[in-house]
Simulated assay, not measured.
Amino acid sequence: MKNVSIIGLDKEITHKLVVELNTLLSSYQIQYMNARGFHWNIKGENFFELHAKFEEIYNDLLLKVDEIAERILTLGGEPLHGFSDYLNNSKISEAKNISAGRDAISNLLSGFSELITTQRSLLSLAGDAEDEGTASLMSDYIKEQEKLVWMLNAYLH
């Protein structure tokens, strides 16, 4: 008999998913703080437009942080919750002292590209694990963020 979790998933593969989801959670937390900082510190002629856009972005990121943490719990894992853990596990670097709109947009664009890459990897792993819940979440995030990446890139060009 297979070693399965309470929701019927193989525990060994589920552990791998939890590790990767915690990496994703960490990256989301850093991306969230970067967007929040850009919202607070933006200056220049596009202030009003970018201030509002950064708020929209960080609010969406915050919702996804909660969903990812709850998915980790659903899989029987424990979400990371220390900021030092986020800094150590994130694939996105923290951004400091950025107040120029183009620099902030470029930074967010890079972060979202990294999130998409990580989510694609998780989508594949979730598929192998027959974990529809995680796969569905990753698919939804990828679809949304591909459009956002296109829009952020269009803003820069």
Score class of each variant (00 low, 15 high):
residue 4 V to T: 15
residue 17 L to A: 06
residue 24 L to G: 04
residue 26 S to Q: 02
residue 29 Q to P: 05
residue 33 M to E: 09
residue 34 N to Y: 04
residue 34 N to H: 09
residue 35 A to K: 05
residue 35 A to I: 00
residue 37 G to P: 02
residue 39 H to I: 02
residue 44 G to E: 09
residue 49 E to F: 13
residue 49 E to I: 15
residue 53 K to C: 11
residue 57 I to C: 08
residue 59 N to P: 03
residue 63 L to D: 15
residue 64 K to F: 05
residue 66 D to W: 02
residue 66 D to R: 00
residue 67 E to D: 10
residue 68 I to L: 10
residue 68 I to D: 04
residue 68 I to W: 02
residue 69 A to E: 00
residue 75 L to W: 01
residue 78 E to Y: 06
residue 80 L to H: 07
residue 84 S to Q: 14
residue 90 S to W: 03
residue 95 A to C: 10
residue 95 A to G: 00
residue 96 K to S: 07
residue 96 K to L: 10
residue 103 D to V: 01
residue 106 S to F: 07
residue 106 S to V: 00
residue 112 F to S: 06
residue 114 E to L: 11
residue 116 I to N: 04
residue 117 T to V: 12
residue 118 T to A: 15
residue 120 R to H: 07
residue 122 L to R: 12
residue 122 L to F: 12
residue 123 L to H: 15
residue 125 L to W: 05
residue 126 A to Y: 03
residue 127 G to N: 13
residue 130 E to A: 15
residue 131 D to G: 04
residue 132 E to W: 09
residue 133 G to W: 04
residue 139 S to I: 11
residue 141 Y to K: 08
residue 142 I to V: 09
residue 146 E to Q: 13
residue 149 V to H: 01
residue 150 W to A: 06
residue 151 M to P: 07
residue 152 L to M: 14
residue 153 N to Q: 11
residue 153 N to I: 00
residue 157 H to N: 14
residue 157 H to L: 02
